[in-house]
């Protein structure tokens, strides 16, 4: 007897929903929200679409999100109806051997002026600030999607205690490199921008550099990320080393 296939978790759309985003993009939606199961399907479809895109010039690009994949086409070359048929006919197992996922270890100065929300989170959780930082550095995170800002990776795998809703009032300006949590995710602001996440600390690592060869966004979908705590002095030293070219983030932050 064959084992019965496991029933899909109730939160997944089965089959996935195909949503028309105009005449030049199609969203394949697996769920209404992120879940480990939805993320696994997103990863798998993205790998399959990579195979399709390599052979079909009408596919311009595809964008994995936390719960879906949006495929952009050149509508004068490929209709969405044909794209749907191609997706249906993709043989099982036709997946690109995805580029090796990279494991990163990002240095973070927790608290102080670099992490202005750390005291409040610590007092909410009844913990010391150091303990909250340890909770964050203990995590092993995965980049489920990149978007919103160039190079902003949504990192999953946050300890439930740090799964806070967004701040009631967003900040008009969050400094570049701020390490933050909200809605069950953690992430790093790649550039100074408005934002509503809780700021735990700040990394000196430039997360996005459009002219960095082959790696404009340091953290790509599928990569894994850990954080390690550093001193204010180390923060200052690394900040200038990365910016005046004495250190290369790609080699310096690759996890051993």
């Amino acid at each position: 007897m064959c084992a019965q296939p496991a029933a899909p978790p109730a939160l997944l759309h089965d089959p996935p929903r195909l949503l028309l985003l105009g005449d030049a993009a199609l969203t394949v939606e697996f769920a209404a929200a992120w879940s480990p199961e939805a993320a696994a399907r997103v990863r798998r479809l993205a790998a399959r679409v990579a195979v399709l895109a390599a052979a079909e010039e009408g596919i311009r690009e595809y964008v994995p999100t936390l719960r879906s994949v949006t495929i952009h086409v050149d509508p004068s070359r490929l209709s969405l109806r044909r794209l749907q048929a191609m997706l249906r006919d993709l043989p099982e197992g036709a997946e690109a051997t995805a580029g090796e996922a990279t494991e990163w270890c990002l240095p973070v100065r927790y608290g102080g002026e670099q992490g202005p929300d750390l005291p409040e989170i610590a007092s909410t959780l009844g913990m010391a600030e150091d303990e909250v930082a340890e909770l964050h550095t203990a995590g092993h995170y995965e980049a489920a999607a990149v978007g919103g800002y160039p190079g902003f990776a949504y990192l999953t795998g946050v300890d439930g205690r740090l799964a806070l809703p967004r701040r009631a009032s967003p900040r008009l300006s969050v400094p570049e490199g701020s390490v933050a949590v909200a809605n069950g995710f953690t992430g790093v602001y790649p550039a100074t921008a408005p934002g509503g996440w809780h700021l735990l600390g700040r990394t000196p690592v430039p997360l996005f550099a459009p002219d960095r060869p082959g790696r404009p966004a340091l953290v790509m979908p599928g990569d894994t990320v850990r954080f390690r705590a550093i001193s204010p002095e180390e923060f200052e030293g690394l900040w200038s080393a990365f910016r005046d070219g004495r250190a290369d983030p790609v080699t310096a932050c690759r996890a051993p």
Binding site: L21, G22, A24, A25, T27, E29, A32, A33, W34, V63, T65, L66, R67, S68, V69, T70, H72, A145, G147, G148, Y149
Partner: peptide, 28 residues
């Protein structure tokens, strides 16, 4: 929960007043 954007998409925030997205829009 954020999903893919496209140029020309008519998104509707809580105010009910739509915003039509142009080429510098967010990706999601």
């Amino acid at each position: 929960a954020s999903d893919g954007n496209a140029t020309g998409a008519v998104q509707v925030p809580g105010s009910g007043q739509p915003i039509v997205l142009l080429p510098d829009r967010h990706t999601v």
